[in-house]
Design a protein around this nucleic acid. Sequence first.
DNA 1: ACCTGAACACCGTTCAAGT
DNA 2: ACCTGAACACCGTTCAAGT
Lengths: 224, 224
Amino acid sequence: MTSSSPPGGSARRSRGRPAVPLDRILATALQLVDEEGAEALSMRTLAQRLESGTATLYRHFGNRATLITHVIDRVFGEVELDSSSLAEVSWDQACQTVARAMFDTLGRHRKIAPLLIEQTPTGPNAMVLRERCLAVLLDGGLPPDLAARAYATLSRYVLGFAIQLAGSGDDAERERVSTHFHDLPSDEFPATRAVADSLPVPLEDEFAFGLELIVDSLRRLRTP
Amino acid sequence: MTSSSPPGGSARRSRGRPAVPLDRILATALQLVDEEGAEALSMRTLAQRLESGTATLYRHFGNRATLITHVIDRVFGEVELDSSSLAEVSWDQACQTVARAMFDTLGRHRKIAPLLIEQTPTGPNAMVLRERCLAVLLDGGLPPDLAARAYATLSRYVLGFAIQLAGSGDDAERERVSTHFHDLPSDEFPATRAVADSLPVPLEDEFAFGLELIVDSLRRLRTP
DNA sequence: ACCTGAACACCGTTCAAGT
DNA sequence: ACCTGAACACCGTTCAAGT
């Protein structure tokens, strides 16, 4: 009650209170996840940040799951894919560009990936992204059934790695694991010890490495 | 109190109560996850199934996370990998066998995958599995740094797909998505409509498809 | 020693009551 | 119409008190 004084006599609350705009709810929710993690996105915490009450949120969303659905599609909306530049590059480069754009966006919102497990995204932005990805595969000369499988593999691949980004970026954990591997007895763990210097591999490198392997093989599957 | 009667007069509770064996805690915890999902594994629910109290669990595990760590390594212990049969097959077949064995086990415990995101598994069973996988890659002729990256890619690939198994297997959801794709306007979504009959692809097929693509490319990277 | 009940500070969700 | 406070049935975790 001490925080805000009425801004002049005229700008009074119309009736009840000004409605909380849906866009502000989603922006605040995404910000909350980015800053504090997916589990911090509780109805209470979100309502607090909006200086509102939990029941207000239930006016816009039936439950926490649908709120999350909307937050997710907001993230899909951030994927940057320039159509013209996609058309200029080779087929396999286009594949990698789409996958990387998706991965980069999810990398910018590392903490949101765990929320993506539960549902196949069917928000408007997700639909558009899938369409463009499938268009690249079909234009590249893959027959529809193979294009469908290639798309599914690629999107699962991206999502699978993106989800693991959540537990990544923790230097202390990386250090702990590396030390653990170096301290292993060489008689029981010769192979692990032999590659201990190269582990753990940063997840971003892993992603790029595997993506190249997949797209390379995919290229050979096109109609010859 | 009605469930068990003392087996003869001598086998009395030594002092206090008989300790709850750690193995029974873990078996019950895994069963709970398998039956009701990862989020059902609450300290309270687990204690209830054990006919014990939550504080008893904190005698064995400092917190819920370490309890989960132990449950996870129990699952890794179920991965079936016959050493001799691995030695008989070709290098790329061995790769696929290891990856599939891991995926199959996680498929048998679909609901545990979400718990795997947070931590790099370093339990005893996980360590042994990694060692054997790396041995295959090194024996196959990959130099250590490449073997490390190949291993990381493969294990991330398996885990990434396994995590997504959690939200899979729901026929209603598959039907919903399929219908949604078929009802799209063909002018806005020509590519999606063109492959709508082939979507969604079962996750197991996706996994096998992508795994083959990766191993195919990996085979070409060996010392020629 | 090991277990227990009760407590603390949280959740998602609902609903009668306010303006 | 839209928002609010309080309630209900849950969490993970801790701790004094029991046997």
